[in-house]
């Protein structure tokens, strides 16, 4: 289906409805302005604050994008159900901090660190559980647009101690928009898309993902199983599709 402003609004509204179904009736999601107001209300706790214990901290060193994608999926698939649910209800809230997991492992318990040590995750946990770490590090800044890359395929590894998924491995394309997208924005958008896709069961250990960069997602004919739509002041419609996960290919 072609991406249109109507479609983006529908995707964004559907996400809000599926994550917080109990609020769907009372939130007006019919226009962009109403959607943004509803999002802000949910984010600031104005509408039934999600249960605490739902913050993930991602410590970012200098990861390659392929490592980031693979390891995000691996981390998300290792989150136990009882923690995954509140995290999902909190819109997979994640704080990105600049730091080197290898320098922090003696002091903090990471849920997962990539094999090359370039990125690591803590939580989901209550905010106070990661307060000391957040005080020690700085918010990650990455203002540069990532250069386009040749398609690269990664395989999602199973979390340690867990057997591979029983279902047949699948292959999907992951399209990522790069024009006027700073690396830090890309990080946030791809993280949400992948984390939610894992929690929704779209991505499982053993699956393969081919990362493809495009300046803008518009015009892509592929059917998407999941689209990451968010506010974008550069877009004429106020919303933009930042990344998309295709149906099985």
């Amino acid at each position: 289906m072609t991406l249109t402003s109507r479609r983006l609004l529908t995707v964004a509204a559907d996400r809000l409805r599926s994550v917080r179904p109990e609020l769907a009736a009372e939130l007006d999601l019919s226009t962009l302005e109403a959607l943004l107001a509803a999002k802000s209300r949910v984010a600031t706790g104005g509408a039934d604050t999600p249960a605490d214990g739902a913050l993930v901290v991602c410590v970012v060193g200098r990861p390659a994008l392929s490592v980031l994608v693979r390891e995000t999926c691996r981390f998300a698939s290792s989150v136990p159900y009882e923690r995954a649910r509140p995290w999902q209800r909190a819109f997979t809230r994640t704080v990105f901090l600049a730091g080197q997991p290898g320098n922090l492992r003696d002091r903090f318990t990471f849920a997962h660190v990539s094999g090359d040590g370039s990125v690591g995750w803590l939580g989901p946990a209550a905010e106070q559980d990661t307060e000391a770490l957040r005080r020690l590090l700085k918010v990650f800044h990455g203002d540069r647009e990532p250069p386009a890359w040749a398609p690269v395929t990664v395989t999602v590894p199973p979390p340690p101690g867990k057997s591979p998924s029983l279902r047949r491995p699948r292959h999907r394309d992951l399209y990522v928009a790069t024009a006027r997208v700073a690396f830090s924005t890309l990080l946030v958008q791809v993280n949400h898309l992948l984390a939610e896709a894992v929690l929704d069961g779209l991505i499982a250990p053993g699956d393969r993902l081919t990362l493809r960069s495009v300046p803008w997602l518009t015009g892509l004919a592929s059917p998407f199983a999941a689209l990451r739509v968010d506010e974008d002041t550069d877009s004429p419609h106020g919303l933009r599709a930042f990344a998309g996960l295709t149906e099985e290919t």
Binding site: V60, G61, R62, A98, G99, Q100, N103, K138, F140, H141, G142, D143, R144, E145, P146, A182, F183, S184
Partner: peptide, 13 residues
């Protein structure tokens, strides 16, 4: 920690 390649900063860690 040198994150200039990503448009980030250099830190003493």
């Amino acid at each position: 920690l040198d994150q200039r390649e990503l448009g980030g900063r250099v830190y003493l860690d």
